[in-house]
């Protein structure tokens, strides 16, 4: 039996008396794009934060490539090949856009020999170009619009050269045109070959999103959670017909 790329087993998180994430288990394959949807307050963001160990899980286990990463430092998890973006953008506001991304390129696995600083700069610019904000590279991050900040966030995440990318609402607050653009770059990123790891596949992705119409075009599978519990894991076509999912989103049809 092959080891699943990312395996989440019985992940649980309590905030005091509130059980925000309850007994969540799923797997993600190396070349899969998975959507994570659910109504507001379902625990999607909490789940991402648990995976990155920004929040400590109450119980459960996360394994990446067969290695237990539960409770390891966030920075260490990032260096193992799992990166995430935040729902609320948190750039380094007083640093130039290029420097924002450069920080992500400075992980310990970067070789520090010869002209390495130059290489790091080029990689940062590459990531910015990929997300379409290379023209803003020298501006401080504080002057960027919300859409550009979202893209900066994405550039920062892919600059760490992840094998698994956790995206928390990448389209949140974007205009329809921007959404199409970002969705396009996500698809290209997943195909791989273009960015960073030149001779490898693109990263696997777990995308939290509310704009379902855009999301369904990208993903291979969808995980639906409600009140912290997984209620459906299926391909997009079946999920939209699933009774439990419809109930969670719209409520029971009253008689």
């Amino acid at each position: 039996m092959t080891v699943p790329f990312l395996q989440v087993e019985n992940l649980t998180k309590d905030f005091g008396g509130l059980r925000a994430v309850e007994d969540v288990s799923f797997t993600i394959d190396r070349n899969e794009v998975v959507g994570l949807i659910g109504p507001n307050g379902a625990g999607k963001t909490t789940l991402i934060r648990l995976l990155m160990n920004i929040l400590k899980p109450t119980a459960g286990k996360v394994t990446l490539k067969g290695e237990d990463i539960t409770g390891q430092k966030t920075a260490k998890i990032v260096n193992k090949g799992m990166a995430s973006t935040f729902q609320v953008v948190k750039p380094f506001r007083h640093l130039p856009v290029a420097a924002n991304v450069m920080v992500a390129c400075l992980s310990p696995k970067t070789k520090r020999k010869g002209e390495w600083v130059k290489t790091v700069e080029l990689r940062a610019l590459d990531a910015l170009e990929f997300c379409g904000i290379a023209d803003l590279a020298l501006e401080p991050a504080s002057v960027l619009s919300h859409g550009d900040l979202k893209r900066l966030e994405l550039a920062r995440a892919i600059a760490t050269e992840p094998e698994l990318l956790l995206l928390d609402e990448p389209f949140g607050g974007l205009s329809p045109a921007e959404t199409t653009l970002v969705a396009g770059s996500l698809r290209r990123l997943h195909k791989g070959g273009r960015f960073g790891r030149l001779h490898s596949e693109g990263p696997a992705m777990l995308i939290v999103e509310h704009k379902l119409s855009e999301l369904m075009k990208i993903v291979d599978r969808v995980i639906v959670i409600n009140f912290g519990k997984v209620i459906a894991i299926d391909v997009p076509g079946n999920v939209v017909k699933n009774k439990d999912v419809i109930e969670a989103y719209i409520g029971k049809g009253g008689k």
Binding site: K73, T74, F92, A99, V103, A159
Partner: peptide
């Protein structure tokens, strides 16, 4: 650069693998 990044936002710095 890294010290400044920590001053600006520690959480983001950590999520960048620092």
């Amino acid at each position: 650069l890294l010290l400044r990044a920590i001053r600006e936002d520690e959480m983001t710095a950590r999520a960048s693998g620092i």
